[in-house]
Structure formats: structure tokens, C-alpha cells
């Protein structure tokens, strides 16, 4: 079936949004970066064939010396402290980063959208209780609360992901609920109600598509910021066991080598700059896209 982009108002707006995003050079840059990372993550087994096929996230090591070795022919990016291959870690770490971002944001957004929509739409006691609970959870900074949960559940990357998901859903509830509240009493919603459209259908077809945009923006930004927070927790030592391909842990491994010997203080730069650069570029890609989405969705800036 041929889609008529001009006739359907929602499709017309979507096309307008897409054009606006693709005309934004920073968004295109972000998109290219992201495509690069996605390709690396998908093709990881081809780019860096695992030495241990059963546990591919385990970084291969070439000995046990704590002193990092510079890039060579066998180790393109060199080895970090403990002789873990940086190239392998960076490639498989991309998968880890996507796993963290997708799981945390996916869970938090799903819970937040559901609770926010229902609470905002129905209001009443449930809404009141939920929002007071959100107030309480909001009182502790993300990192601190997540750390407390990881401590309680035990160390490990999975627990970091679960902890972050259990913390950040609060942002989505607030944003989603605020959006639903402004739409709930609009004339078109009232009209739908008068025509006997069911509550579920009103929420799904009339409210959700109009209230979802701010959520999309913060979800995009969070894909990056969750990787930052998770990598910091790995850096502190709350993450996966040593040798797991994770950018934050790779930075932690190199921590004692940020300053080289006096005659060559920057000798071990690659141990920090390569995994660290990956974190920055990954986060930057999501932020550039998020920024463009915000500009494209912002009604005050949209038609200018």
C-alpha cells in the first residue's frame, strides 16, 4: 500500500521532523558516529574473533605484567595493565555499552511511560501515592542511589544495569505524566470520550503519540549518560570481574599508569585515551542526536 505522506497529518509532521533532523549537521555527525558504533557492536566477532568462544567478553591477555605495552603489530592499540588487549576490549566494550544503554533506558522508559500515562490520565489517589513515591526517590542523586543498590545486590555489570534501571525510571514518570496532564482535558480528547472511545484507546492513540516526544529526547540523552554512570561505577570497582570487556573497567585498569616515568610522562597515554575516547564519542553521538531531536520537537523552535 502506498503511503500518502502529504495527506495524513501525523505522517506529514513526521516527515517534517525527519527532514529537520537530517538538515542538522550535528545530528548527521552523531548519526554517523552511532552507525559506526552499532556496526562495531554487531560485527564484533568478525572484527575481533574471541579467544574464548564461550565467554567472548573476556579480554585475551598476553602475559601478566602490570606495565602496559605500546601498540604493536599483534596488539594494534597496545595492551593495558595486566596485558589485556586494548583493541579487543574496545570492540567488545561497544557491545557492553549498547547493552547497558538499551537495557537501562528500555526498562526505565517502559515503566515510566506506563506509570506516567496511567497516573496522569486517571489522577486520584493512585497518582498521588505514586508521585509522592517518585518525590522520595528523586531526593537521592542517581549515582548515590544506584551505588547503594549495587552494594546491596552485589557487584557486577548486571547489577549495575539493574540498579540504574531501578533509579532512572523516576525521570520518565515525571516527564510523561506532565505531558499527559496537559493533554488530558484538551477538546479533542473530550470529543473522543464523548464518542465513546475506550480509555485504553484514548491513551494509546490520542494521548501517547502527542506526549511521547520529551520522553524520546531524554531517552536518547540517557543512552549516553547511563553509560557514563555505569562506567564510573565500573571504574570505582563495582562492575564486572577483572578482564571483562568494559570501557569503564579498562580506564580503571590503566589508572595507576596515567603518569609514566619522569623522562616520558605521557608514555602510557593509549591506555586511557583509547577506551576513554570510546566512552566520550559514544556519549557524544547520543547527545548530538538528542539535541537535534529536542530542537526538532520543540514547538517554539519547530517552524522557524
Amino acid at each position: 500500500m502506498a503511503v500518502d505522506w502529504e495527506k495524513h497529518p501525523r505522517l506529514r509532521e513526521l516527515r517534517f521532523t525527519l527532514i529537520k533532523i537530517f538538515r542538522n549537521p550535528t545530528a548527521v555527525l552523531g548519526g554517523i558516529l552511532l552507525l559506526g558504533f552499532a556496526a562495531t557492536a554487531v560485527l564484533a566477532p568478525v572484527i575481533a574473533p574471541p579467544r574464548y568462544p564461550d565467554s567472548p567478553y573476556r579480554m585475551p591477555r598476553k602475559g601478566y605484567s602490570p606495565i602496559p605495552k605500546p601498540p604493536s603489530e599483534t596488539n594494534v592499540f597496545g595492551t593495558t595493565s595486566g596485558q589485556y588487549d586494548i583493541f579487543y576490549g574496545v570492540v567488545w566494550g561497544t557491545r557492553t555499552a549498547f547493552k547497558i544503554g538499551l537495557f537501562v533506558v528500555g526498562f526505565a522508559a517502559a515503566v515510566g511511560i506506563f506509570l506516567g500515562t496511567v497516573a496522569g490520565f486517571y489522577g486520584g489517589l493512585v497518582d498521588e501515592l505514586l508521585m509522592r513515591f517518585v518525590d522520595v526517590v528523586f531526593a537521592v542523586p542517581t549515582l548515590v542511589l544506584a551505588m547503594a543498590i549495587v552494594v546491596a545486590f552485589g557487584r557486577g555489570l548486571e547489577n549495575i544495569m539493574i540498579a540504574l534501571a531501578l533509579v532512572v525510571w523516576r525521570n520518565y514518570v515525571r516527564v510523561m505524566r506532565a505531558g499527559v496532564l496537559t493533554l488530558r482535558d484538551k477538546d479533542y480528547v473530550q470529543a473522543a470520550r464523548l464518542m465513546g472511545v475506550s480509555d485504553v484507546k484514548i491513551m494509546l492513540r490520542h494521548i501517547l503519540p502527542n506526549a511521547i516526544y520529551p520522553v524520546l529526547v531524554i531517552a536518547t540523552m540517557d543512552m549516553g549518560s547511563m553509560v557514563i554512570t555505569a562506567s564510573f561505577m565500573s571504574f570505582v570497582g563495582l562492575g564486572a570481574p577483572k578482564g571483562y570487556a568494559d570501557w569503564g573497567q579498562m580506564v580503571a585498569l590503566a589508572r595507576n599508569y596515567i603518569v609514566g616515568p619522569p623522562e616520558d610522562p605521557l608514555r602510557f597515554w593509549y591506555t586511557i585515551v583509547i577506551p576513554g575516547g570510546c566512552i566520550v564519542l559514544f556519549v557524544l553521538a547520543w547527545n548530538l542526536i538528542g539535541d537535534a531531536l529536542r530542537d526538532a520537537f520543540d514547538p517554539r523552535q519547530r517552524r522557524r
Partner: peptide
């Protein structure tokens, strides 16, 4: 600044 992890 937004994309830089503080620790890094």
C-alpha cells in the same frame, strides 16, 4: 562538557 564523564 555534557558528554565528558567527570572521572575521565
Amino acid at each position: 562538557g555534557w558528554s565528558l564523564p567527570t572521572f575521565l
